[in-house]
């Protein structure tokens, strides 16, 4: 049986981070984003980096996995860095490259921006490596629950999220098969202007979409046949237990936030 790429790239383990309630990890993520936003200098970046490395060590997952997660986005990071470097003119002029000049202020801004992006990706990886996708979905669902009072269809959204997680690999496989079938019939996007390419993609979009609709209908029948009713109360098999370690984890974010604010 082929082992397909799993969504979320969950990596099995028993570390402290693995055993935390997904809600605390999600809450931690929000705190972390706040902290990262406040980073604006080499010093504050260093604080953020240390904190992130501590968390990475706690996941007991080798650093190479995180580097592999960052690699695909290296061009984006480089672009942002260069953008800042060339378009900020504060500080002392350090280098002259033809028409462009690099200033120390720009360099700092560029490196800090790159650092922030990297930290962000690293933490997102911590979340996805240590938490199974459906648990993230459960956590999101529980966070959104108070919004029910405002008329937000929380149950529907949570259902959509978990069904997406269930079906994305399956639909991806089907899309691949349809692509292969069309290629076998002479489908090709090579050497075509963009407009023509877009037009030709209908050969992929129509089958995949109509199949998705068909699936949705069958799925609705299957769910109803198993006594599912939208809005009816149901029990919950998967439990999320908030322990003391979870509270401590979320509270621990106050340290970097305070430090970063101090050194801001």
């Amino acid at each position: 049986m082929k082992h397909k790429l799993m969504l979320g790239r969950y990596i099995e383990g028993q570390s402290l981070l693995h055993r935390l309630d997904p809600r605390s990890k999600l809450a931690g993520m929000l705190c972390f984003i706040a902290a990262v936003f406040l980073i604006n200098s080499y010093v504050t970046l260093f604080i953020g980096l240390v904190f992130t490395l501590i968390i990475i060590v706690l996941t007991k997952i080798p650093l190479s996995y995180y580097i592999r997660a960052i690699k695909p986005l290296i061009f984006l990071i480089a672009f942002i860095t260069l953008f800042h470097i060339f378009f900020h003119t504060e500080g002392a002029r350090m280098l002259k490259v033809g028409v462009f000049s690099i200033y120390s202020g720009g360099l700092e801004k560029g490196l800090v921006a790159a650092g922030r992006m990297t930290l962000f990706i690293a933490f997102a990886s911590v979340l996805s490596f240590t938490t199974q996708p459906d648990r993230i979905a459960n956590a999101l669902g529980s966070f959104l629950r108070p919004l029910k009072r405002l008329g937000v269809p929380v149950e529907r959204l949570t259902l959509m999220l978990s069904l997406s997680l269930r079906f994305i690999p399956t639909i991806f496989e089907e899309a691949e098969r349809i692509w292969k079938a069309q290629v076998s019939r002479g489908f090709s996007l090579a050497d075509q202007p963009l407009k023509e390419k877009a037009k030709r993609t209908i050969a992929l979009l129509v089958p995949v979409t109509s199949s998705a609709f068909r699936r949705a209908e069958s799925l609705a029948d299957a769910m109803e046949a198993r006594s599912y009713r939208l809005g009816a109360s149901r029990s919950q098999y998967r439990q999320m237990l908030w322990k003391r370690s979870d509270t401590l984890f979320v509270l621990s974010f106050t340290l970097p936030i305070c430090l970063i604010t101090l050194f801001n």
Binding site: Q132, P133, D134, S162, L163, L165, R166, T170, R215, S218, L219, D221, A222, M223, A225, R226, S227, Y228, R229, A232, S233, R234, S235, Q236, Y237, R238, Q239
Partner: peptide, 28 residues
Amino acid sequence: FASPDDQFIGLTVRDDIAFGLENLCLPR
């Protein structure tokens, strides 16, 4: 149903079996 994929609701076998039981409001 006939289609193995279109009646597999849970993210894992465990969750799929649990799905119907949750609908029946059975305790954990």
